[in-house]
């Protein structure tokens, strides 16, 4: 049994320690927000937080998540919506949406570390890939959410 803390709740799963966290979340815990895109850490569709840091869960053996706090898109905001999610809606960021949960998790980690990021900060932190090409709006939405006037919804 592997004991995890996911979105603030203790969870036990009977899986191999080398199973990547992504598949534990998706196939064993029913948390389907994080997506499989490449399986090699190249796209970021599987991004979740591990003790607040963005990690690519497809390339993280679940054993390494033990004793740490895992947060997925489902737990990004305890109540309501994270201000990034609101900004994402305001700027109509998603197209197909497949990469967007990973985008949001990366952006949330960026804002936690740098409440008012510059364009260069965004360039550096947002290495998630989007086949639909939502990048212009991702940048705009992060800037909007970083403004002190950004609507705080929930968390």
């Amino acid at each position: 049994m592997i004991k995890l803390n996911v979105n603030g709740k203790p969870r036990s799963v009977d899986v191999e320690g080398e199973m990547p966290l992504l598949f534990v979340l998706r196939d064993h815990l029913g948390l389907l927000g994080a997506k499989y895109g490449c399986g090699i850490g190249a796209c970021g569709a599987c991004t979740v937080h591990l003790d607040g840091m963005p990690v690519r869960s497809c390339s993280l053996p679940v054993a390494q998540a033990v004793g740490k706090k895992v947060v997925t898109i489902e737990g990004l905001s305890a109540k309501g919506m994270h201000k990034l999610q609101q900004a994402w809606i305001d700027h109509e960021v998603p197209q197909c949406g497949y990469c967007q949960t990973g985008m949001l998790m990366s952006a949330a980690a960026l804002l936690a570390a740098k409440p008012v990021p510059t364009d260069a900060d965004i360039d550096q932190a947002m290495t998630n890939l989007c086949r639909c090409g939502t990048y212009t709006r991702v940048r705009e939405a992060i800037h909007a959410a970083a403004k002190p006037t950004a609507k705080k919804v929930g968390a």
């Binding site: 389907l32 927000g33 994080a34 997506k35 499989y36 997925t72 898109i73 489902e74 919506m81 999610q85 994402w88 809606i89 109509e92 960021v93 998603p94 949406g97 497949y98 967007q100 949960t101 949001l104």
Partner: peptide
């Protein structure tokens, strides 16, 4: 007008084929 599919998409709610 705002797209109808976006609010769910920012919450990770939509069911894609793989979901």
């Amino acid at each position: 007008l705002r797209r109808l599919d976006i609010p769910d998409k920012v919450l990770g709610k939509p069911v894609f084929g793989v979901d």
